[in-house]
Design a protein around this nucleic acid. Sequence first.
DNA 1: TAGGCCATCTGGTCCT
DNA 2: AGGACCAGATGGCCTA
Length: 223
Amino acid sequence: LNLLKSISNDALLDLTQRYGQSAFGFGAGHGAGSPGRFPLTPAADFLSGQTAKSNESGGEHTSDDEDGFDSLESRKRGSTFGDDKPGGPLAKKSKEQRSLRLSINARERRRMHDLNDALDGLRAVIPYAHSPSVRKLSKIATLLLAKNYILMQAQALEEMRRLVAYLNQGQTITSPIPTALAPFGQAAVYPFSGSALATTCAEKCSTYSGAPSTLFKHCNDKP
DNA sequence: TAGGCCATCTGGTCCT
DNA sequence: AGGACCAGATGGCCTA
């Protein structure tokens, strides 16, 4: 959380300005973004009920033909380069060249669709509100947000490791926790700062109710 | 209306 | 040779 908040490179700053802080400040109270922005789902919710579709890049693409425009949607979006345009660049070419060009175009189209499918898969697993009424993250926003999310997860994992190490070695320590032994330099970052009186391992573990049970297995093993 | 974002076409380059 | 990848160009759609 802190990492995501603290990262402030130019691109992220720009994104924050463009899409609103809510996209990067989950749980920070900016969740209710303005319509059309990217309001956040609560951190606890964003991973649950996710509808990440299986990303089969090698799968069939029903909308692709081997020749030129593939669908009405493509036609609407497509440029006026139009392969089938009478005055287009393909008009002067031979039938074989035209056929080859159309094949290359279709392949390139398919490749870009695969890329977009992968981006959709990425959007499905990063923290922002997934709703029909919410505008989809842009490609660049998706990549930058995903990068920061990965960094944040890595830091969370590291903190968890340190926490487990601390719990394993400090079960007999009584309150207050000596600063030198505290695995986290500042009290503000210490995950149990809100329950300073929970001094035993079991108490600490019970405080951290959201953690996977295997992380605190030692509390059950040892009386 | 300008700017952002996007899909598509296209030609070039690299790889297998 | 054929496919993958890339970047530039172009035009459509949407929003502030």
